[in-house]
């Protein structure tokens, strides 16, 4: 099975505290550590496991600037066979539909049985996979937490739905699936693995290579655009306990007792 996995380079929230810069134009980007989007890493692991079972290939593709090469290489160190970087100033400011348009143009150049995305990325949209499927006229399933590939015409999938339930379906190939975390346990990638693929060539394609013009991509074509960032105000806010650890603990024990928090 030939599998394509779409991956995005994002600020790693496990490594950074994300905050808004002083003008609200962006998040504070100094000293941010970037990595591959958590969901995409599960998607790549799944693709590798399927390939190792039934044969075929895994290609990872990212739309982004030259720094996205790092995440492509990381996923190649995990075991993906090939990386492709889609990069062009003309792609900047694309909305979800623009991104799906760019990815679709690349997909049209190859032949894939299975296309995987993450369930969502850093901005919590969860849109690229579903749009891509619709543009390619392929069946789609989101939040997939089980794949059983046995047949080259169709596969069995599980979707995560409410309350820990799982929805089982059969889906025809080729198809697009968005992958939910927890579907597998992504393998660890060491420095050595990354070194091994350090010199592998990663082709870079721009708008003209993909036959795209500004009508469908970039800021000009985007129907959805971000105006600013701000710090959310969700509720009234917690009372923050001050003092030394011992003082905080004493206060908290008292509070817990009065609220029935100690049986």
């Amino acid at each position: 099975m030939d599998i394509l996995v779409c991956i995005k380079r994002v600020p790693d929230t496990a490594e950074n505290e994300i905050s808004v810069n002083s003008s609200g134009s962006d998040i504070e980007r100094d000293d941010l550590v970037y990595s591959v989007n958590e969901w995409d890493n599960y998607a790549v692991e799944e693709a590798i496991q399927i390939r190792d079972k039934v044969g075929g290939s895994v290609t990872v593709v990212a739309v982004g600037d030259s720094e996205s090469e790092d995440v492509l290489r990381r996923e190649m160190a995990m075991g993906a066979d090939k990386g492709i970087l889609l990069s062009d100033d003309a792609f900047e400011g694309s909305d979800g539909k623009g991104l799906a348009t760019i990815l679709k143009a690349e997909i049209a150049k190859g032949k894939y049985d299975l296309i995987l995305t993450g369930a969502q990325a850093d901005d919590g949209a969860g849109q690229v996979g579903g749009m891509l499927a619709a543009m390619l006229d392929l069946p789609f399933a989101s939040l997939v937490n089980l794949i059983e590939a046995s047949d080259d015409k169709k596969i069995k999938i599980g979707r995560e739905i409410a309350g820990g339930q799982q929805e089982i379906s059969e889906i025809d190939l080729p198809c697009v699936l968005s992958i939910q975390t927890g579907i597998n346990e992504p393998r660890y990638v060491g420095i050595r693995g990354i070194r091994k693929v350090a010199s592998v060539e990663i082709p870079v394609r721009g708008a003209s290579d993909l036959g795209l013009n500004q009508d469908s991509i970039g800021a000009a074509a985007a129907k959805v655009s971000r105006v600013d960032y701000f710090t959310p105000v969700l509720g009234k806010g917690a009372e923050i306990l001050e003092g030394s650890i011992d003082e905080k603990v004493d206060k908290l024990v008292e509070l817990l007792k009065s609220k029935g928090g100690i049986k």
Binding site: D123, G124, R226, V227, D228, Y229, P232, L234
Partner: peptide, 13 residues
């Protein structure tokens, strides 16, 4: 909207 699991909010058009 919110991004980064609610760590920041945004206005979008």
């Amino acid at each position: 909207r919110q991004e980064f699991s609610g760590q920041v909010s945004t206005h979008v058009l």
